[in-house]
Design a protein around this nucleic acid. Structure first.
Lengths: 193, 193
DNA sequence: CGGCCTCCATACGGTTGCGTATGGAGGCGA
DNA sequence: TCGCCTCCATACGCAACCGTATGGAGGCCG
């Protein structure tokens, strides 16, 4: 049992812990839920701790966004060392869209584009994903125009259908959204075993 | 010049004016911007006026949502008295998605689905639009399954692409989003003159 | 063991928005 | 004209959140 004011050195908090907690709050309640006191409560700490690690709330949001963007970069980097283009695409979609929390974060960030910090990051990450997907299609022999068109259709279609499912306008779609996106790209629905 | 405390009877405010202003605030700043004092300022009035017409903020949000839903119903009702299915579909898309403020409101409401009031309305309106579009495709001879699939692809694709354009991840799409949706539905891009 | 440094708690003031209370200005009918 | 009714302004208390100030507990090191 952890008593008041007694915290082992190993379980002390760092900026990364705060950023992680901020991302969790973001996924659950949107950018407005990334508030100092609520996140502090989530970590079982008080505001005094927060303002030791961060200058202000803006710094927390920036740290959370940076951690999220780094995660997406880590995913793409891991893809480079994969065998085929199809497998890379499939893995990208699975990692980027399959994870529920990650999908929720993307949704929240798109919703809060008006915030300058959020806008810059979500715009950069989206462009990165789109260009990576387009590059994969190019490797598979599709033309520049067709690759562009299919990537937009697949990414946009995924986002829109995910939104429709989220709001409850659509009960279910046949198969997974990732499989649908693969089909839009003109690729086989499952990676070859 | 309107002086302080002097307001002609004709220019007095009613609940509809507040709902309209609330929708404008919603389109610009999201649900959080639908706050009593800011909207009052927008109307050049003070809170005292608001609480005469409404019980609380919740009532204002409900009135705004009702007015928006009534607008979409009015659009659909107007479509019934149109010549062909293709023209009805085209007009629906134009009215529902072509108008910038309406599109912005839809985006905001989808973003705030977690709010129970918003969720109910946006779910109902989305279902209504989807079923109307599906019905039009049925009239054109498409099968139940194909109509469903194409409607989801068109509506979802529109939502996703609109989001990508809004966040600045995509600079421009070839042609209008409405034309793209029409193509997804298997319909000619422009209504026959 | 005494002093310092790190991490955190508590307390406070400032801002913003919600909701209430109270009163005032002007139209309108008796 | 007098009184009422409608619409709105002003002032207040309350709550949530941001940021600051101050102090305290515990590890570490001379």
């Amino acid at each position: 049992m952890v008593e008041r004011g007694k915290r082992g050195v190993a379980e002390r908090l760092g900026p990364d812990d705060w950023a992680r907690a901020a991302l969790a709050a973001l996924a659950e309640g949107g950018l407005g839920a990334v508030a100092v006191e609520p996140v502090a409560v989530r970590l079982g700490v008080s505001k005094g701790s927060f303002y030791w690690h961060f200058a202000n709330r803006r710094a927390l949001v920036e740290a959370a966004l940076a951690q999220w963007e780094a995660g997406t970069e880590r995913v793409i980097a891991r893809l480079e060392s994969l065998d085929g283009p199809v497998a890379r695409m499939r893995t990208l979609l699975d990692l980027a869209f399959g994870d529920a929390e990650n999908a929720a974060i993307s949704f929240r960030l798109i919703s809060e584009v008006d915030d300058p910090l959020v806008g810059e990051v979500v715009r950069r990450v989206s462009r990165r994903r789109l260009e990576f997907m387009q590059e994969v299609l190019r490797e598979l022999g599709q033309s520049e125009e067709e690759a562009r068109r299919r990537v937009l259709a697949a990414y946009g279609g995924y986002l829109g259908l995910a939104a429709l499912v989220r709001i409850g306008a659509v009960d279910e779609v046949s198969g997974s959204l990732v499989d649908l996106a693969m089909a839009e790209l003109g690729l086989p629905p499952a990676a070859p075993s």
